[in-house]
Design a protein around this nucleic acid. Structure first.
Length: 491
RNA sequence: GGCGCAUUCGUCUAGCGGUUAGGACACCGCCCUCUCAAGGCGGAAACGGGGGUUCGACUCCCCCAUGCGCUACCA
């Protein structure tokens, strides 16, 4: 039987990196085995559904390059792939359970349930639906049950959990997990609004969509035995289960927005590369070899092994993500980077530059920043003349002879042709040596004048990118306009 | 409280009875150098505790501790 896996998010928010990793592991597993990767939307909670969430989930996964074989947006033979469109199926299936005595009706109000739990808490016992003390098919005469149902009284269907035996399953990552029936609650399967709960819908859909492997978060371990019970009651073969370790905040709490960005869209907006984010997230809980960090999607697919996924939760380390993104920044082709940088520069109101200028600018600075947008900020001087100067830096390298040297340098630069880093270095070195000065006597002031900053790429390389005209313009401007201020600062 | 899952450097991890416990990020130092990076070299840094099993435990078993998850007509 060929592998079929699904990513089954509930549209209660935007895709976060925990969801991304779950989707990725499902994808890697499917592709590794030549199977199908399916998207199913679990929108059984009407109140928590967030508009736009489905679109965001699909968009973000497409952005990182995870395409589905089946799903609400692409169709497929086992649709619909949205649970709110499958209500009739669940209703039919729940009747099978009812007939077989595997489930029962319950008529308790929320208030009654609350009182039950309070009673249990006071008695110091675990809060759990008390099948024999509440109003349901077990306690009510069957005529009364029929009457309530005919009346249209609010009713739910609950799973009749056997209380006298263990329920076990073999997790691909964790091995055998066993829970006793008495520790399981009589889970609601069908809510009074006619919607199924996660447990029912999930099992029914996984069956009818022929899912072979359920790869999901660790938070589902405690309810898996209930799912096993459902498969048993239906007489269906259960899929294989693999529960992934959780992703945590730096303080070890469950991943949340409070500790910074968790939405995939946040990372996209900040200029992280999809390849880097995917690579980073892939290595949270699993790694193909201990001696490498960078992998292409194809390599991840080839190496993926579900049984080697870690069992312990992993903390999301931003510093490592930054490092990984920086690796990709140096690896990715310049023309792609330039095209991506272009709109960012526009947003900042910088003038338009030809693609090849952008490529040279990126080549100049890509080893000095982690993310592409930083080239527009860290390297703003490549796109507009300095708007301010680091006067402290200037003061540190100020010489009284500087104005004169600069005047004398102008014609030298004018005659430097071609205006390359190599020739510039040669010319300027010669220039300072003639005056018995070290190279740094001019390098630092020039850097300040041309970039406004004390840090950046090599001066000669920077000059070559800026071009002769721009360099001359900036030096002249400095001499005429900024120098009086500069001298004030050195006083 | 109950049930479950987990526990190797600060972080991500390798390890699958015998290793000087390896790598990566971050950190520190040195080198390179026009600054800042990058790069090179080096450093510090871990098997939660206690019992077993074994000739021998990071590796297997048990207990404890700690962390996390679940305990809804949420998923």
């Amino acid at each position: 039987m060929s592998v079929r896996v699904r990513f089954a998010p509930s549209p209660t928010g935007f895709l976060h990196i925990g969801g991304l990793r779950t989707a990725l592991y499902n994808f890697l597993f499917a592709r590794h085995h030549g199977g199908a990767f399916i998207l199913r939307i679990e929108d059984t909670d009407q109140e928590r559904t967030v508009p736009g969430a489905v679109e965001n989930i699909i968009d973000m996964l497409r952005w990182v390059g995870l395409e589905f074989d089946e799903g609400p947006h692409v169709g497929g033979p086992y649709g619909p792939y949205v649970q709110s469109e499958r209500l009739e199926l669940y209703r039919q299936q729940v009747h099978i359970l009812l007939e077989r005595g595997a489930a029962y009706y319950a008529f308790d109000t929320p208030e009654e349930l609350e009182r039950m739990r309070q009673r249990q808490r006071r008695a110091g016992i675990a809060p759990k639906y008390d099948r024999f003390a509440m109003r349901n098919s077990f306690t009510l005469p069957s005529e009364e049950v029929q009457r309530l149902l005919a009346d249209g009284s609010p009713a739910v269907v609950r799973l009749a959990v056997p209380m006298d035996r263990d329920i076990s399953f073999d997790d691909l990552i964790r091995g055998r997990i066993t829970v006793h029936g008495r520790d399981l609650d009589d889970q609601v399967l069908l809510k009074s609004d006619g919607f199924p709960t996660y447990h029912l819908a999930n099992v029914v859909d996984d069956h009818f969509m022929h899912i072979t492997h359920v790869i999901r978060g660790e938070e589902w371990i405690p309810s898996t035995p209930k799912h096993i019970l459902l498969y048993e009651a239906f007489g269906w073969e259960a899929p294989q289960f693999a529960h992934l370790p959780l992703l945590l905040n730096p303080d070890r709490s469950k991943l949340s927005k409070r500790h910074g960005d968790v939405a995939v869209d946040d990372f996209r907006r900040q200029g992280y590369f999809p390849e880097a984010l995917l690579n980073f997230v892939a290595l949270l809980g699993w790694n193909p070899t201990a001696d490498r960090e960078l992998f292409t999607l194809e390599e991840l697919i080839a190496a993926f092994d579900l049984t080697k996924v870690n069992r312990a939760p992993a903390i999301v380390d931003r510093a490592k993500l930054d490092w990984m993104n920086a690796q990709y920044l140096r690896l990715l082709p310049l023309d792609r980077l330039a095209r991506q940088l272009q709109p960012l520069l526009q947003e900042l109101g910088y003038p338009d530059y030809p693609l090849d200028y952008l490529m040279r600018a990126i080549a100049l600075l890509r080893e000095r920043v982690d993310r592409l947008p930083e080239i527009a900020t860290f390297g703003d001087y490549l796109f507009i003349p300095p708007r301010s100067y680091d006067w402290q830096y200037f003061r540190a390298h100020w010489r009284d002879e500087l104005p004169q040297w600069l005047e004398e340098l102008l014609p030298v630069l004018e005659q430097t042709e071609p205006f390359t880093a190599e020739l510039l270095q040669q010319q300027i070195r010669q220039f300072v040596e003639h005056r018995g000065q070290p190279l740094r006597a001019l390098v630092h002031p020039l850097r300040l004048i041309l970039t406004g900053k004390s840090v950046g790429a090599g001066l000669f390389e920077t000059m070559a990118v800026l071009g002769k005209a721009e360099c001359l313009r900036r030096i002249r401007h400095f001499l005429t306009t900024e120098l009086p201020t500069a001298q004030l600062h050195t006083a």
